[in-house]
Design a protein around this nucleic acid. Structure first.
Lengths: 252, 252
DNA sequence: AGTGAATCGGGTACGTCGTACGCACAACGC
DNA sequence: GCGTTGTGCGTACGACGTACCCGATTCACT
């Protein structure tokens, strides 16, 4: 959004009437995304993007009225990436709700891992781009032959979505530190160990102590994620009306 | 974290050897939090904070080695806020797992609503401050007489936590736009309506159309949140070992 | 009481950022 | 031919985080 509070897509289309242009909006957005992927969101400055494209910084403003707009476009761009593999109807839809929800969850997480700057962009930015809208449409398609009401559909995908984003956010916090410092997960954990040990040594956190000592080290975040996602999906399916619930796991 | 990759608490304590100081770390952190609450995270600059305290910008660096450290401290500060109401043992713990999880969820959401800049800080910043650790400890206490293993405990609070953060993040995105533009929720929705109508008019999003037309307008986000939170908690409780599950809803 | 060391507050300055403004140039309709 | 329109981009301004440095204050210790 800019000063008028509208996201870029809700505003009358840009002119781009003229003939020869050495720059183009998709080109700019693409360069910005590539930069963010390679060096993090902080590396994405107008000057850097322009430099990457071999043009002047101010040239970008012929295509984008504000950096914030560019960020909106980046967000929608990567949402469109997922869509590229998908044709008119969702190829992945198995018709079995539990599997579909699982796939949506894992797919969303994979997408965020490909572009770790996504969560930071989504904080404080309502996403309403065309690609995002198509993503929602496709997500809703998993209810096609389930005959549940609109509110339930929104609840269900909303809950799964919220969980996935919350989870990856925590995951990425750790990865981000590792990226910025160049430390491996191993090294970072070792670096933190004395502090953690000091905390536990106070004896003020017996439950945390128990969890750290007895808990299995989640070296593979994916299985951790899968486990928790299944828990959430269980809850979602359990809340469905009975007819839909019986069909959620497919024909027995 | 700074260049060494360690959060501020994992480093040897700052000197603060001398006697009389017109500034103090808690004072600085407090001013920063107040500023963020009042004008948003972007208003939090070293110069602004110093100005608010009637001192020079560079003076702050006697107490904080980097702005990033200050942000870490702000995060832990507000986590401590919640703790202020709580004494040694959690007053709110009912011993009934479902109610405890509900309370944790609603409490966490309330906390984030009090400080809408929290999610943006947590993106890309592992939180390990003492207050945060105490929060975790207290959250784990709800399993005290339930005899479940460490992994299950982490799974359970992790799933609820992740969901809550994901949910409020979406909520706040909308609120943030309203704060920045000064528009009310009503006004903003009206401003967006033509764009949304245009999308639906294309006929390419039949499911989204159905959801928007038939779905009840969630004017009260709290009931929406409560509904979805209960769904997640259902899943969590269902995944507990049977003995614990039977006790989760308390004595019948 | 006198003195050296440490810590305080903060001014100046550098390199970065987003972007307002305006100019030179190219392609078009007439 | 000539205005009109749209491009690319150089310059400049006011923010930002913070490195560096200096005078003033206060402590620890004789």
């Amino acid at each position: 959004m800019t000063s008028d509070g509208l996201p870029i897509w809700a505003r009358p289309e840009r002119k781009t009437r003229a003939t020869s242009a050495s720059l183009s909006l998709p080109q700019i957005v693409g360069a910005a995304v590539k930069l963010a992927d390679a060096e993090g969101l902080d590396a994405v400055s107008m000057r850097r993007i322009a430099g990457e494209l071999g043009s002047g910084a101010m040239s970008l403003y012929r295509y984008v009225s504000t950096k914030d707009d560019l960020l909106d476009l980046m967000l929608d761009e990567v949402m469109g990436e997922t869509l590229a593999d998908i044709d008119e109807e969702w190829a992945g839809a198995s018709g079995i709700l539990r599997n579909d929800l699982l796939e949506i969850g894992h797919g969303l997480r994979a997408q965020v891992h490909r572009h770790p700057w996504l969560p930071r962009l989504m904080s404080g930015r309502p996403a309403f781009g065309p690609n995002m809208v198509r993503c929602i449409e496709i997500a809703l398609s998993i209810f096609d032959n389930l005959d549940v009401d609109a509110d339930t559909m929104m609840h269900s995908v909303g809950a799964v979505n919220a969980f996935v984003f919350g989870f990856v956010q925590e995951e990425l916090a750790e990865l981000e530190v590792q990226r910025q410092t160049g430390l491996s997960e191993q090294e970072w954990h070792e670096r933190m160990a004395p502090y953690i040990r000091g905390l536990l040594a106070t004896g003020k956190y017996p439950r945390l102590h128990k969890v750290i000592v007895e808990g299995s080290d989640p070296d593979d975040h994916t299985v951790e994620f899968d486990g928790q996602l299944r828990i959430v999906i269980n809850g979602v399916i359990a809340s469905l009306p009975e007819a839909a619930r019986r069909k959620a796991d497919g024909p027995i």
